[in-house]
Design a protein around this nucleic acid. Structure first.
Length: 554
RNA sequence: GGUCCCAUGGUCAAGAGGUUAAGACGAGACCCUCUCAAGGUCUAAUCCCGAGUUCGAUUCUCGGUGGGAUCACCA
């Protein structure tokens, strides 16, 4: 007769640490009343997902608000899917969004007393707990091959039964310890399964911070907790880690609700108190058939946080947008606070909507414009340089030609009550300001200029020559504009659009046409910020040269 | 398919047993105007369906429908 203890020793001969030892090693945290311990637990399988940013944002917020702890744990038990370096990348990207963990995995180091925070370094801990479960008779080795498993599944499907490894189908749970030992000794590959005592006919009540209380079927699957590669599965690692790391609130995506009964049963089997759970709605996207689906990293560029970084969105804009999804009262709050100090907003789980929001890039753009409009020219400069340095060398080169010139450009109609709101991301900055730079301006001249065809070249020349005499370098905006108007009138243009429309035969055009000629001559395009300021920034020398060049090209 | 979650304009959504059913983004119109952006004013647009409870249901209950998530030695 082989006891569970003997079986456990046979499987894990070198594991001497017990669960009690571990409990001593990881005592209760000393934290203020009401402090919550949250965690973000990504797998290093690629770049940061927008949904993960959302989750980690809320984890950070909840911990900060309650003076608790937010830590990061790297879930790298799937060695096949692991992408080298992506753990560090994840951390870096979180930092860009001001989401910095208090402890845990920090990229190249680890911080805190509840580690290690990388699952592949916790093998001894998992083994100790599994050994404990085997001794308790709540876990057993399973020798079923993928082939066996497929067979079971096929039988269940044809009999229209719930698929899986449970009850009578869990063949290996009925093996005697002698049989187990014999096969183990023979070197048969195995996994360890949890011996479920649940029944899916029975329901359990579960509590969720977002969804409230609801009923769900008990788990009855003998899930794998220890893989043949010696690493735990997610379910088991979650329970063990969040227990020993003293997580109070597990905040994760809604896709985990279905496996909640497994986790709860595991906690119970180990005699541990389960944490609070908050299952967040997933961010959705409309597919080509008009159906909603979860943002997919493979199909949707906006699923990867790096997409927004590459485009040069201000990081605050994405966070602000995500906060509107997180809490329905946030938007009103941030309007009231003029898009500032969003860290002062108090997040609450019950202000969270229950169905996943469609990702709305238009709304993100709106926040981005608001945020950039609020920045000073110095801030814009710093942000632009940081962006360009990483993603757009050409932009960096242009900015560095003269930081002060760049700042003047960016400062047009900025320092006022209602600043311009035409920039939303740095990715398209260069194309909107390039005409301020002579080399780009010359490139623009290579194409046809968008002069109104109603006017011939003589007329345009006459207008430009006259205006050139009155460029606004010694006068204020009103004075200059009045003088442009006068020049226009002298040359046969109506003082405003209305006058022209009422009597189109009497005039060559309106003052708008005059301004347009000048604008095209100076900028190569029909739209630009206020001409007065554009000219000021360009300097008299440049304006003169450009006008002369246009006239002589006719 | 089983199980669970969800359901107010195009999107994000507030809302209470009786409301003209907020607000924001977006769209459209007008004003301002040298164009654009901004700003101002205005407009259009929503309670999934069916029963039940009730004097009264978009709100409560049930059923349907629709959408989503999940059913691995992945997390």
């Amino acid at each position: 007769m082989i006891t569970n203890q003997e079986l456990a020793n046979l499987i894990f001969p070198n594991v001497t640490e017990t669960v009690e030892d571990l409990e001593k090693e990881f005592p209760k945290r000393q934290l203020p009343e009401g402090a919550e311990v949250t965690r973000f637990a990504p797998s290093p399988t690629g770049f940061l997902h927008t949904g993960s940013l959302f989750t980690s944002l809320i984890c950070r917020k909840v911990a900060t608000q309650t003076r608790g702890v937010f830590f990061v744990r790297l879930e790298d038990t799937d060695t096949k899917r692991e992408i080298q370096g992506s753990g560090e990348e994840l951390l870096e990207q979180l930092k860009i969004f001001n989401i910095v963990p208090d402890e845990g995995y920090m990229g190249n180091s680890q911080k805190g007393n509840y580690g290690p925070y990388v699952q592949s370094q916790r093998a001894d801990i998992y083994r100790a707990v599994i050994k404990h479960l085997i001794i308790l008779g709540k876990a057993y080795p399973c020798f079923c091959t993928p082939h066996d498993l497929n067979e079971i599944r096929a039988r269940q499907e044809s009999a229209k039964l719930v698929p899986g490894y449970y009850g009578q189908f869990a063949k290996c749970r009925f093996l005697t310890n002698e049989e187990r030992a014999t096969r183990l000794l023979a070197g048969e590959p195995f996994v360890i399964r949890f011996k479920s005592s649940g029944n899916h006919i029975r329901k359990i009540r579960v509590h969720d911070l977002v969804h409230g209380t609801f009923e769900i079927a008990q788990n009855d699957q003998d899930i794998v907790i220890y893989k043949s590669d010696g690493l735990p599965t997610y379910h088991f690692a979650h329970v063990v880690d969040d227990h020993f790391m003293k997580t109070t609130t597990v905040i994760r995506g809604e896709e985990w609700i279905a496996s909640l009964p497994i986790h709860l049963e595991l906690f119970e089997a180990l005699g541990w108190k389960a944490p609070l759970y908050a299952h967040l709605p997933v961010i959705m996207k409309l597919d080509e058939n008009g159906n909603r689906r979860k943002l997919s990293k493979r199909l949707d560029s906006e699923a990867a946080v790096s997409y927004f970084l590459q485009d040069g969105y201000p990081s605050e804009a994405l966070i602000m947008y995500l906060m509107t999804i997180a809490n329905s009262n946030f938007e009103e709050w941030i309007f009231l606070h003029h898009f500032e100090k969003m860290e002062d907003f108090i997040f609450s789980f019950n202000k969270m909507s229950l169905d996943g929001a469609l990702f709305d890039i238009g709304k993100l753009n709106f926040f981005a414009r608001e945020i950039l409009a609020k920045k000073t020219k110095e801030e814009i400069y710093d942000m632009a340089v940081a962006y360009a340095d990483k993603y757009q060398p050409k932009l960096l080169e242009v900015i560095k030609r003269s930081p002060s010139y760049f700042m003047e450009i960016m400062n047009i109609e900025r320092e006022k009550e209602n600043p311009r709101k035409d920039y939303e991301k740095f990715g398209d900055l260069l194309s909107s300001i390039n005409f301020f730079y002579d080399d780009f301006y010359q490139d623009l001249l290579k194409g046809p200029l968008p002069f109104n065809e109603r006017f011939n070249k003589q007329t345009i020349s006459r207008v430009l020559i006259a205006l050139k005499e009155q460029l606004p370098f010694a006068v204020d905006e009103q004075t200059w504009f009045a003088s442009m108007k006068n020049i226009g009138i002298t040359l046969g243009f109506a003082p405003n659009g209305k006058t022209y429309k009422n009597d189109p035969d009497k005039y060559l055009g309106s003052i708008g046409d005059v301004a347009e000629m000048l604008r095209i001559a100076l900028t190569g395009r029909k739209n630009s910020p206020n001409l007065y300021y554009v000219m000021k920034v360009l300097t008299k020398e440049r304006c003169d040269k450009r006008i002369e060049q246009i006239i002589s090209s006719f």
